[in-house]
Each structure stands twice: as structure tokens, then as C-alpha cells.
Design a protein around this nucleic acid. Structure first.
Lengths: 117, 117
DNA sequence: TCATCATATCAGCATATGCTGATATGATGA
DNA sequence: TCATCATATCAGCATATGCTGATATGATGA
């Protein structure tokens, strides 16, 4: 059995991964891999609504994945650590090799359809 | 704006991250970082219910994060790629430095409580 | 052949999550 | 001081997700 301490650690680490585990948030993080950006710039790049972007940014900032800096009326966000970009790069490499499997996950699964494998 | 191809790629990659983004699944993956395990062994190690473990394993297998091998009545699961373990290790390192932030995320947020920061 | 065992699957549920439209906040320049 | 602009926050909703208890599946040894 796992110790309680491990359970807590795993819960926190899962939360960290979940920061990356949404298409909108991952789009934001990917954009920030290039350069720091204002909220407006992220809205423009991703095509997400402004409240949606702000919500995700709050979430990402609380989890420590991004950092914010206010500059006048603008707020510029950047990745808080190089390892955030590294995680994305590593996942992309992994994905390249197992892409077929994940792609299958994205298909609609008709119940009774033996399309698996 | 993001191209449609990027949107698809991000959606698939987010799905990959989501495989890690649940405490139960991460506990399973962490256990498999040590050695391949049968479903029963995973149930014993994690304390999760057997149906729950089987469900998560199906999910992880579909996404290509783990591979299964039937041996008699037993099914042994293992990580499908070394990078799965690498991602977990990298995230743990990152977590060590931003732990405070993520920890804050785990607290109950009383509405109106200005506990942030 | 049949009881047993390991695993997979299922329906149903409670809860978490992501989004939208509306609005609040707070900084700026006139 | 006030209109404007960038961003944050909010309520409400539709949907996704994770779990449980029950049951199905399929392999094994007697």
C-alpha cells in the first residue's frame, strides 16, 4: 500500500500534469514557450475567448507553471521554469512514437464497434 | 491564430498529459516505473479497487503509455517507453521547486477568503 | 466439464471541469 | 475626473470524469 505521504505527493504531481492536460492550457503554454506574451496576445494567438484565457492563466499561475508581471494596463505572462518547456518537448517526442495509440483515443467509439487494435 | 493542424496536435498532446493528470493513474504509472506488475499487484500497491485499476489501465493502454502482456490468467502491465518514467521524474524535479504554488492549489478556497499569495 | 481465479466491462452516480456572456477592477491618458 | 482599455472575476450551464457495486469474460487445474 502507498503511504499517505506518497498519496499526497502523487495528488500534487497529478495536479501539475493536469495543468498541461487541457488543449486550451497546452496551447497557452506552447505559445509561451516562444516568448512572454500579454493576455491579449495569447487571445489573438490561440483564438480562445479573453475570459477563458484569463481563467486558465490564473489556474496555471496558481500551480506555478507561469509567472505574471504587470506592465501598465497589460499583464505579461511567461513560463516560470525551463522545465515546463522541457516537459512539453519530451511529451512531443514520446507522442511521435506512440501517436497511433493516442490518435485512436480521439476517435468516436461506436459501442459494439470492434475497431480497437 | 493556431492552424487546425496545431489544434489537433495540441489536443492529442493534452490527452497524453491527462494520462498523468489523475492521482490514481499517476500512482499506477509510478508503480510501473519500478517494474512490470500484474493488475492484482497494482491493486495491492495502490489500494485502489480492482475495477478502478482495470479502467485506468485500459485508458493508459489506449493512449500508449503502458503495454499489456497476458500470462495465463494474469495480465502484466509495463511502461511502454522509457520517456514515460522520464516525464514523471522531470515533473517531480519541477515540482520540488514550485511545490508551494501547487500546494496552495490543493487547499479549499473559501469564497471571499483572500488567502491567495 | 466445472469451480475458481484474475481481469474486464458495465450502468449509474456524484463531482469536477471548461466554456460563455455579463460585469467588475484597475491603470492610463486626455 | 472621466472615458477607455486590458484584464480578472463571476454565475450558470453542459459535459467529462472517476468511482462503486454488480456482473461478464476467459483461462486454469481438478
Amino acid at each position: 500500500m502507498l503511504l499517505a505521504a506518497d498519496t499526497t505527493r502523487l495528488a500534487i504531481e497529478a495536479k501539475l500534469f493536469r495543468g498541461f492536460g487541457d488543449p486550451s492550457r497546452l496551447a497557452i503554454l506552447s505559445a509561451l514557450c516562444q516568448e512572454p506574451l500579454t493576455v491579449g496576445a495569447i487571445v489573438g494567438l490561440t483564438g480562445l475567448s479573453q475570459p477563458n484565457v484569463s481563467n486558465h492563466l490564473s489556474c496555471l499561475r496558481e500551480c506555478g507553471l507561469v509567472a505574471a508581471e504587470q506592465q501598465g494596463r497589460f499583464v505579461t505572462y511567461r513560463l516560470s521554469d525551463d522545465r515546463v518547456a522541457e516537459l512539453i518537448t519530451l511529451a512531443e517526442g514520446l507522442l511521435a512514437d506512440i501517436a497511433l495509440g493516442v490518435y485512436e483515443c480521439t476517435r468516436y467509439r461506436v459501442p459494439g464497434d470492434a475497431q480497437t487494435e
